[in-house]
Amino acid sequence: MGFLSRFIATVRGTSTASSLDWAELEKELLASDLGPALVAQLLETAKKERGDDAVAAITRILNEQLSSKSRELSQTTAMSVLLVVGVNGTGKTTSVAKLATHLTSRGEKVVLGAADTFRAAAVDQLKTWGERLQIPVVSGKENGDPAAVAFDAAKSGAELGAQRVLIDTAGRLHTKSDLMDELGKVKRVVEKVAPVTEVLLVIDATTGQNGLAQAKVFSEAVAVTGLILTKLDGSARGGIALAVERELDIPIKFVGTGEAAQDFAPFDPTSYIAGLLS
């Protein structure tokens, strides 16, 4: 039984819970990385309700934080390009492989662009995925210009009649302005070939409050259209993604739940919010 249910069971029938119960509730909500401000707001509202209404109230407020934008991948009739971006170690390359699997299973032809020309063996890593999934991977020279690789990938995609081109990029901290500029350039260069219909920011579910700063800065550089929230199979609940939805109105489009290509699903608000409260 989730902590919230236990809490409710304790206060059922009474108008106030003991201060100890509220402390427990606060603890769990904070543990989800919702941040002290939102948690304070949740508690304030919950205290005004009684019993079951408190659960509903908290769930309602959490739902209100979500973006109302579509969680579908933008569709075009022509070929479209998806950029996958994020800070180091969040699971971009694995997510690209998962996304490719997901799109292929929907009958779409996919081409991958190995535009992480910086990290040792990053291109090899994506190529290994390409081999496993039987999907073409376009790469360039080591330490080469990622924009050039992205451009080539889009061109190849067009030649091969692909519906989607997924561009894997190097992990970069949002505090590195030259790397953020580089990302902007990658997008601009690719757009000469085909429209970039999605810029997906990959966020690790274990990330704390810094996740919001990441999303803000990446958005300024390349207009992020959606999030991929990864590593939700761990003990982290990914509450910071909710803050991104609220503050920046960027919808979570997919979640990653493991290291295999199948460990991937479209975002489901109900189970996510239940997870925050469990």
Binding site: D33, T206, T207, G208, Q209, N210, G211, S235, A236
Partner: peptide
């Protein structure tokens, strides 16, 4: 451990 980790740091470190 990644410096940007949030509240999960405790659970994970303990595990």
């Amino acid at each position: 451990v990644d410096a940007m980790i949030g509240q999960d740091a405790v659970r994970t470190a303990q595990a």
